[in-house]
Simulated scan of single mutants.
Amino acid sequence: MEASDVLDLYRACERDGVTIWIDGGWCVDALLGEQTREHGDLDVAVRRGDAVRLREILTGMGYLADPKPDDTDWNYVVRRADAAAVDVHVFEHDAEGTVTYGIAYPAQSLTGTGIIAGEKVNCIATQWMFTFKTAYPPAPKDLADVRALAARFGFDVPDTHR
Rank of each mutant, 00 (worst) to 15 (best):
E56V: 14
C13P: 11
T131F: 14
R47G: 15
H93Q: 07
E119L: 08
R47L: 11
L31V: 08
N122S: 03
A107W: 09
P140M: 04
A3W: 03
G25M: 06
M129F: 00
N75K: 12
R147P: 05
V6T: 05
A144F: 01
G49H: 10
I20G: 11
A107M: 15
G24V: 04
K68L: 14
Q108A: 15
A150V: 01
K68S: 12
P67G: 09
F132G: 00
E38M: 03
F132P: 00
P67Y: 11
A12K: 10
I103Q: 15
Q127S: 14
A65H: 06
R152C: 03
D50Y: 12
D66F: 15
K133C: 07
D71Q: 05
M61V: 08
D71F: 13
V46D: 04
E2T: 15
D87Q: 14
A51Y: 01
Y136D: 02
H161E: 00
F132I: 06
W74M: 05
Q108V: 14
G40Q: 12
T160E: 13
G17W: 08
A139L: 09
D23S: 10
T19M: 07
H161W: 00
T131K: 13
I20E: 14
G112E: 02
L58F: 10
V46K: 12
A51R: 06
R47Y: 05
G102Y: 05
Y10G: 06
V52F: 15
P140V: 03
S4Q: 15
I22P: 10
A51G: 03
T36P: 02
H89D: 03
C27G: 07
L42R: 01
Y63G: 04
D23F: 13
D50W: 11
H93G: 07
K120V: 13
D29M: 13
V90H: 09
M129Q: 11
M1K: 05
P158K: 08
M129D: 02
V99N: 13
A117W: 03
G60T: 11
